[in-house]
């Protein structure tokens, strides 16, 4: 057995000669350098400062929105909607694959031209492949009396801005 065997040959995996040691050292340093390069590349490719438009939109004075109206802004990709309960803002970006939806006044629904998803004016999905309803954005009244919309903050639905 291993305890009493004097002539027992050394275990091959325990024996490290000079060549094997340097091979491992070399491969180890190369692996470390590769991991560093990978992490460095990942950080380099992720921009830290983005020159994208501000998520906060000034939607203007509430009086310009008629009762029961849906106003779409294609530049900021939001809907500003006024109903009896108050004002609210929806994202116009379809939750399926990011196409710009459009308000269809003839049908009274929001429809996506890409893959046929349909939503009510409250963002609820009626038909199509969209996995989620259109998100509601946080809205508030600025000190100047304008409706402000924050496209970066999604709120639970049915929270109206009452004026």
């Amino acid at each position: 057995m291993a305890e009493d065997g004097k002539s027992e040959p050394a275990q091959p995996e325990q024996e490290v000669n000079r060549r094997a040691f340097f091979t491992r050292l070399g491969l180890g340093s190369l692996g470390l350098a590769a991991a560093g390069t990978l992490s460095f590349s990942y950080q380099y490719m992720s921009p830290n400062v983005l020159y994208e438009p501000s998520p906060i939109v000034n939607a203007g004075n509430p009086s310009k929105y008629a009762m029961n109206s849906v106003t779409e802004d294609r530049v900021t990709a939001i809907y500003l909607i006024r109903v009896q309960e108050g004002f609210f803002s929806l994202s116009a970006i379809c939750t399926h694959l990011g196409c710009m939806t459009a308000w269809r006044p003839d049908l009274g629904i929001i429809a996506c031209p890409c893959h046929g998803s349909r939503f009510t004016r409250y963002g609820k999905k009626i038909a199509g492949p969209a996995p989620r309803p259109l998100p509601w954005y946080r809205t508030w009244l600025s000190d100047d009396g304008d409706i402000m919309v924050d496209r970066a903050t999604v709120i639970p639905p049915m929270q109206f801005l009452r004026i």
Partner: peptide, 13 residues
């Protein structure tokens, strides 16, 4: 998506 686009939008990046 963020790495591909270099941002959140299909833009200059």
């Amino acid at each position: 998506r963020f790495l591909l686009l270099g941002g959140h939008l299909v833009n200059a990046n």
